[in-house]
């Protein structure tokens, strides 16, 4: 497989690890877009990222030429192999002081990043893949919702999404429709807002940041930014890990692994509106990495 030549993808910020799991001074090795990278937090707790090199053993001695752009945002270390924009997309809720912010999990999945994003946007699979948790038969309908590609923010927004969830809130034990809003502000990242079971007026935020290891492998970093004062970290994390563990075998059994952008490669239905918009958006951006572009 050739290394990434896609300029759009090269110039993006990509997540490579959770800050909470980094020990200051300790070097971690990872792979991004088929390049071997190392990173560590320096004495000030700032991330330093460089192309892996046997001679470089720690953040203090990285030659300037080997250093890559680095930032710490939303609890993760981000880097880029090109010239990234000054800012990363915004998640304003992250700043709200009463929210719990956690890296729920980092999972390796044998699939392309765009396939994983589509799965994140998809409600129709809840009764089948997340049975009794996010959905249950016979409540399988995906009701009409709205999707727009916002030009000024350059992101996809799906609103008015509703799906029947058994045990929708901690207060009542019956099932009910739960509201969702989905954003795709980055080709390989998505943010989901979901009715909070504890506060009707606010929403939990769950984001998935995909680290493209290569065209057909990702590391999925899952951020939780939720309203929950009662449960222990590990309980909250375990729930998301269960959900993700259910998606993984499905994702790894999708063929082809890269996302086909040709509208005639697969059969969309109305429920797939957001995925259709996403594929179109990737096409318009001219993205070639992790996808099968439309034949010219």
């Amino acid at each position: 497989m050739t290394k990434c030549l896609d300029p759009v993808i090269l110039n993006l910020w990509h997540p490579i690890g959770a800050i909470a799991e980094a020990v200051p001074g300790a070097v971690q090795d990872t792979v991004l877009l088929e390049e071997r990278l190392s990173f560590a937090l320096n004495a000030d707790g700032e991330p330093v990222v460089w192309r892996s090199h046997p001679d470089v053993q720690g953040p203090a001695r990285v030659p300037a030429a080997d250093r890559l752009p680095a930032r710490s945002t939303y609890g993760y270390v981000w880097t880029s192999l090109g010239s990234p924009p000054a800012e990363l997309f915004l998640i304003p809720e992250y700043e709200e002081p009463d929210r719990r912010k956690l890296n729920a999990a980092t999972f390796g999945v044998n699939v392309s990043a765009p396939r994983a994003i589509e799965n994140f946007l998809d409600m129709g699979h809840f009764p089948y893949v997340h049975t009794d948790i996010l959905g249950v038969e016979p409540h399988t309908e995906v009701k009409e919702y709205d999707v727009e590609i916002s030009v000024d923010r350059d992101e996809i927004l799906a609103t008015r999404c509703r799906f029947f969830q058994p045990m929708a809130s901690t207060a009542s034990d019956g099932g009910a429709d739960v509201d969702y809003v989905y954003r795709v502000p980055h080709p390989y990242c998505s943010v989901l807002y979901k009715s909070s079971p504890v506060d009707e007026a606010r929403r939990d935020v769950i984001a998935v940041f995909l680290q493209p290891v290569d065209q057909e492998h990702v590391r999925a970093h899952m951020l939780l930014c939720v309203l929950d004062e009662d449960n222990e970290d590990k309980v909250i994390k375990r729930f998301q890990q269960t959900i993700f563990g259910q998606d993984k075998p499905i994702l790894e059994n999708q063929v082809p692994k890269r996302l086909p952008l040709d509208p005639r490669a697969e059969t969309p239905i109305r429920a797939d509106k957001s995925a259709i918009a996403y594929r179109r958006w990737l096409s318009q951006k001219g993205i070639t990495y992790g996808v099968i572009p439309v034949a010219a």
Binding site: E118, P249, I250, N253, Q254, V255, P256, P260, E266, T267, I269
Partner: peptide, 11 residues
């Protein structure tokens, strides 16, 4: 391969 989203029908 499912015609919808390419999932293997053997699962």
């Amino acid at each position: 391969r499912c015609l919808h989203r390419g999932v293997r029908l053997s699962i």
